[in-house]
């Protein structure tokens, strides 16, 4: 049994102005095949990636926000969103996509993936990760 490492993907950019958000999402989905302990952090402008109601038809770009809802299928279900970053942007949990996962060990009960946490708690999660990948 190879050792499982704690991976943390840190997302700090808004979704469409730069390629970081989409690249991070693709890396997470590809990396999910390696069955490591994966967490995602959304802070600063990264919280904009998870907002509901994105519609890119008029700008001619791919709307990749529905793909975040597939993360649960890929066993990526620890998604941390920083409270201070939401507050600074006039956002709350209600503005974010409802991301869920199904717990195989609990009769496939649907559970929330998103946890809104403070900057202090976020710092702890960063501190406790073996590998931090920043986008």
């Amino acid at each position: 049994m190879p050792e499982t490492k704690k991976f943390l993907y840190v997302n700090r950019k808004a979704p469409y102005g730069t390629i970081y958000a989409l690249e991070a999402l693709e890396v997470v989905l590809i990396g999910a095949a390696f069955e490591q302990d994966v967490s995602l952090a959304f802070l600063d402008d990264g919280v904009y990636q998870l907002t509901k109601g994105q519609d890119t038809k008029a700008v001619g770009m791919k709307n990749f926000s529905p793909t975040y809802k597939a993360l649960g299928d890929y066993d990526v279900n620890k998604i941390y969103v920083e409270q201070e970053s939401l507050d600074a942007r006039g956002l709350s949990l209600d503005d974010l996509l409802p991301l869920t996962w199904e717990d195989e060990d609990d009769d496939w009960a649907e559970k929330d993936s998103i946890k809104v946490i403070s900057a202090t708690e976020m710092a702890q999660i960063m501190e406790q990760s073996d590998i931090v990948l920043s986008f």
Binding site: L29, A32, A33, K62, N63, F64, P66, T67, K69, A70, D73, Y74, W108
Partner: peptide
């Protein structure tokens, strides 16, 4: 249509099973 991605084989297998 729902997720804007083609699922990985592991995900596909699990979802088909369900």
């Amino acid at each position: 249509d729902e997720y804007q991605i083609a699922p990985a084989v592991r995900v596909l297998t699990k979802a088909i099973g369900k």
